[in-house]
């Protein structure tokens, strides 16, 4: 057979080799089947470590706040709100007070209405939380003007 018939074949072989060489350098060494099967475990192993190194932001530990904000801590822990984490209302606090030096103080009604807007839903424990109608219960006023968010008590309010 004539030489020109083979020429495209050389080109193909050349390209395949080029792609393989490129791939050898481009695909990380830790790429492969890690886990029980190729179908679900084909990946770059190093990515697992990258995810593990993702920054934690929430501590979710009310004890941590105890020493510096003892008044708030003592009040909260006696109140029905003791089940709520400080960080739920004040935001992530991993490195507080160095970073951020201050946490969010949200005085909006929305924060309290998350739980206290009355929803009469029989199949949900929401029905067991004292509810108010946001449109009727002192509208346009911050809840904390009358209720202490850290120690809400109805004593003396009635």
């Amino acid at each position: 057979m004539k030489n020109y018939v083979f020429r495209p074949l050389y080109v193909i072989i050349g390209l395949v080799i080029a792609v393989l060489i490129f791939r050898e350098f481009y695909v990380p060494k830790d790429f492969g089947t890690h886990g029980e099967s190729y179908m679900y475990g084909w990946h770059r192993k190093g990515n697992e470590e990258e995810w593990k190194a993702f920054k934690v932001k929430y501590r979710f530990d009310n004890e941590y706040c105890k020493d510096c904000h003892s008044d708030k801590y003592e009040s909260l822990m006696q109140a029905p709100h003791a089940i709520i984490k400080c960080e739920n209302c004040h935001g992530p606090a991993l490195d507080h007070p160095s970073d951020p030096p201050k946490l969010v103080v949200d005085k909006g009604r929305g924060l309290c209405l998350r739980c206290h807007s009355s929803l009469p839903y029989p199949q949900s424990d929401r029905i067991n939380i004292r509810g108010i109608d946001p449109d009727k219960h002192n509208p346009d006023m911050e809840c904390s003007m009358c209720h202490n968010p850290h120690k809400p008590s109805l004593e003396g309010l009635k």
Partner: peptide, 24 residues
Amino acid sequence: CVQVCPVGATYKTEDGVVLVDRKW
């Protein structure tokens, strides 16, 4: 979701969590 990924960027770890490789 893992089965359909054409580039191996999403996978199940050995402890059963499905992750996405943001670089890939």
